[in-house]
């Protein structure tokens, strides 16, 4: 069961990664744009069990590390996404206030997106990754938060439907 979920999730995220790299990165969006992989992974995790959340984080983080524009060490995004997705899944699991309420879901995913970027900057600083000036980092994180608030309500119904069709109502192992 776990292997099936892992392989299906992998395929979904590879397709999202392709869309991110070949379409989203081409658009010159205000504030530097957004990461579709990050947003969908966190939304996916919010609907899953902690185990599936951690696996989702591993797949999406590994793909983000594979991106040629990734400035950090290989495994940097993997580590952060495992922790972020596990935390989001853990907070949402069994809590109807999160699962049953789209607004809570949107805020949970947006907050997690911002906190993941903050964690990336802090751990990147420890690992020697240059992230630019302080103001630039603030603008990037703020605009990513705004993009997350705008886009999560749009992607949530699609991700929920896809998640339900693949794993049933809840993703039990």
């Amino acid at each position: 069961m776990l292997a099936r979920q892992f392989s299906i999730s992998s395929l979904v995220f590879v397709i999202i990664f392709l869309i991110q790299e070949s379409v989203v990165n081409q658009l010159r969006l205000p504030g530097g744009g957004f990461s579709l992989v990050l947003l969908i992974a966190l939304t996916w995790a919010a609907l899953s069990t902690p185990t599936v959340g951690a696996l989702t984080g591993f797949i999406s983080g590994f793909l983000m590390d594979l991106s040629q524009s990734s400035s950090g060490a290989m495994g940097h995004w993997t580590l952060l996404m495992i922790l972020a997705c596990y935390a989001v899944a853990f907070l949402g699991f069994g809590n109807d206030n999160v699962r049953g309420n789209p607004i809570t879901n949107v805020f949970l995913v947006s907050a997690a997106s911002v906190l993941t970027l903050v964690a990336y900057v802090i751990t990147g600083f420890l690992l020697g990754v240059s992230v630019g000036s302080f103001s630039r980092v603030l603008i990037t994180i703020f605009s990513n938060g705004v993009w997350a608030l705008l886009l999560t309500p749009l992607i949530l119904p699609v991700v929920t439907r896809l998640h339900r069709s693949l794993f049933g109502k809840q993703a039990h192992i």
């Binding site: 081409q26 744009g33 524009s69 900057v121 990754v129």
Partner: peptide, 11 residues
């Protein structure tokens, strides 16, 4: 292609 902003690099 342009690099993703979330990587903080300019490529």
């Amino acid at each position: 292609s342009q690099g993703a902003s979330t990587s903080f690099s300019q490529t």
